[in-house]
Design a protein around this nucleic acid. Structure first.
Lengths: 145, 145
DNA sequence: CTACTTCTTCAAGCACACTTCAAGTCAAGG
DNA sequence: CCTTGACTTGAAGTGTGCTTGAAGAAGTAG
């Protein structure tokens, strides 16, 4: 008996926050950056329709896929209205997929460096990093950035 | 005939920056946070010995392995001086390896979401995100944070 | 009515790794 | 002497995604 439609015909910000498992501050922040439309107000307070929860799920999905707030905003309403939603997502998803794949490659590079570190026997720290030893023997290094 | 030892018996900050491929501001920043020892000065200006380049390679290596500046500082001189360098690195490398592995797993989750997005046919954006459709048919979702 | 909770706004803060800026100093070349 | 270019400092700015705080208004329970 907590969050019933609250005799306002909608949900308070607190109710939405509980159901979507975010903080109220997050909801206000999303509104301020255009991820959420400004809901109607009843004596100053936000009153949401239940479908805001769908939007929040969408945002969560997009965040999980690695999109930034700016990108999510573009996904949601930065496009030609005639283009079907799936096409919008797919175009950006393809680009993001490349980014994520590169991220994974970089992380794999880190793993290699770390694994090398785990088996190295340098006594001086600097020994681990010195590559300009032409052809003596061991050498291990990753790169980044 | 650019960066010869500059008649100072050392390298200027500009020379070090060029050779290490970082900006001078980065070198000052590293010094300010304790990654680089303060070099001697000649009329106020920093004059570095060539071995600063080894230290910078080390920093680069550590950054490449995903260590933060604070961690690199600890790696370099936050430890018992008696402990051999390799042991210091290894202890922290083991922890960081776990972090990186988790990062990769999260990124894989993102890939899955993105691949699903690429093959989805939703017309309404919200359709992509709605899981509360009990047992109808398709369903795809990743999670994060 | 009182107390308590929830809500409001707006500014500032956090973490991270630097970069940029302003205002000046200093050495070398012409 | 003057110009040029590299250097000095500390403070503030950048980007990302929120959180926190202050100060006050409005709602709800008893």
């Amino acid at each position: 008996m907590a969050d019933r439609t609250s005799a306002l015909g909608g949900l308070t910000i607190g109710a939405v926050a509980r159901q979507a498992k975010v903080r109220t501050s997050t909801l206000r922040f999303y509104e301020s950056v255009g991820l959420l439309a400004a809901p109607r107000r009843v004596s100053g307070r936000r009153v949401y329709d239940a479908d805001v929860l769908d939007v929040l799920r969408l945002v969560h999905l997009a965040k999980g896929a690695g999109f930034t707030v700016a990108e999510i905003r573009r996904l949601m309403h930065g496009f030609d209205r005639a283009t079907p939603a799936s096409a919008r997502w797919q175009a950006m998803a393809a680009r993001k997929l490349r980014d994520v794949t590169m991220l994974i490659e970089r992380a794999r590079g880190m793993q290699k460096v770390l694994e090398a570190l785990l088996t190295c026997e340098c006594v001086e720290l600097a020994d681990c990093a010195r590559p300009p030893r032409p052809a003596t023997a061991r050498r291990r290094n990753g790169s980044n950035r």
